[in-house]
Simulated scan of single mutants.
Amino acid sequence: MNVRKKTVLYLMLCFLLVACQQETEEITFVLLPDTQTYAEKYPEILDAQISWIEENTENIDLVLQQGDLTQNNNDIEWQRVQKSFQRLDNKVPYVLAVGNHDMGSGPGNFADERNTTLFNKYFPLDKMSALPAYGGTFEDQKLDNTYYVLETGRQKWLILSLEFGPREAVLEWANEIVAKHQDKLIILNTHSYMYSDSTRQGYGDNWRAQGYGVGQDEGQDAVNDGEQIWEKFVKKHPNVRFVFSGHILNNGVGTLVSVNDAGFPVYQFLANYQEGVKGSVKGGNGWLRILKLRPKEKRIKVETYSPYINEYMDDEAHSFHIKEVFLRSGY
């Protein structure tokens, strides 16, 4: 066999090995819901979560936080949150969301107005836009509504992080962004969407954005709850595949698989362990969500783990598998 044929065979073998590795890869997302009680009372717990992520960056593709980073929207709490998350800079892509406790006219005034000055002070766009995966924003110099682009092996992703009670204008922008990225699977990360009975938050449910001061805005500034976000945005696009949210108390968890207008499944998850959730200890005791996606097996494994106490939750609401999952951008 001549040198040229050997080279061709070698390159073909390398290609097959890489393709096989990509097809069997495990894609891992880590969810950090509602860190507000840690920011207020137990910063050591958030530090434990971040330390665990740092130690496992080689096995984590993306970190998503679902809003309510702080409890009281004050400088002390924002400094704690900033100090923790900046440890992940250029180590693993991370996405932050704005919750109702992260906006308002001042400490203790939660979402009475859409003021996110402190959030954008401690996570300024000029700094955040330089980090891995950043794509663009809805408003100049504001991180409130942002999208990110990411590749994991053969899969391309676009992650949209939208404000608490996203406005009509924001959903219109989100529709435009997704329409331009049909080659990617879409993740929606937002503070309030699912309810604790495993349905989307809607009329009659507690803690809707309509019940806060920002909920009185009208026109293009009118807010939307989970069911409205589904109707006006999520279900319209064949490639929107995941929705992650927090915010809701009661038992703090919910899981829903819905079929969009194109006939494809959308996997929607609520996870929240903050103070006020049934059974909560120390505002969550460090519980976070780990989603392990296995494209070849068409399977998602969901785990709930606390680096702070080094334990897993083993009940079916917090540890489960979803099978026959569609995970390719070819829909």
Rank of each mutant, 00 (worst) to 15 (best):
M1S: 05
V3L: 15
V8H: 11
L16F: 05
L17N: 11
V18K: 12
A19N: 02
Q21N: 09
E23D: 04
T24Q: 08
E25R: 08
T28A: 10
L32G: 04
D34A: 06
T37S: 14
T37M: 12
Y42W: 07
P43T: 03
P43K: 00
N56S: 04
T57L: 04
N59P: 00
D61I: 14
L64Q: 03
Q65P: 04
G67T: 14
D68R: 02
Q71C: 11
N73D: 10
N74T: 06
D75H: 10
D75Y: 02
I76W: 05
R80V: 09
V81S: 11
V81G: 03
V81M: 12
S84T: 07
L88Q: 08
D89E: 03
V92M: 00
P93T: 01
L96A: 00
V98S: 01
M103Y: 07
M103I: 13
S105P: 13
S105N: 12
G106S: 09
F110R: 14
T116G: 08
T116Y: 06
L125I: 11
M128K: 10
L131T: 09
P132Y: 13
Y134H: 13
F138H: 08
N145S: 09
Y147T: 10
Y147V: 08
G153K: 12
G153R: 06
R154W: 00
W157Q: 01
L158D: 03
L158A: 09
L158Y: 08
L158H: 03
I159Y: 12
L160D: 01
L162F: 10
E163D: 03
F164T: 15
P166K: 15
P166Y: 02
V170K: 15
W173H: 01
W173Y: 02
V178A: 05
K184W: 10
I187L: 04
N189L: 14
H191M: 09
S198H: 00
T199Y: 11
G202A: 09
G202F: 07
W207P: 05
A209K: 14
G213K: 09
G215K: 05
G215V: 00
D217Y: 05
E218K: 15
E218G: 10
Q220N: 09
V234Q: 11
K235G: 14
K236I: 06
H237K: 09
P238Q: 04
N251P: 02
V253F: 03
S258H: 01
N260D: 07
N260M: 06
D261I: 01
V266Q: 02
Q274L: 07
E275I: 07
V277N: 04
S280G: 03
V281M: 10
G283F: 01
G286A: 07
L288N: 04
R289Q: 07
L291D: 00
K292I: 03
K301V: 12
S306Y: 09
P307L: 07
Y308V: 00
N310V: 09
H318E: 13
F320C: 15
K323V: 14
K323Q: 06
F326E: 11
F326R: 01
L327R: 04
R328I: 05
Y331D: 07
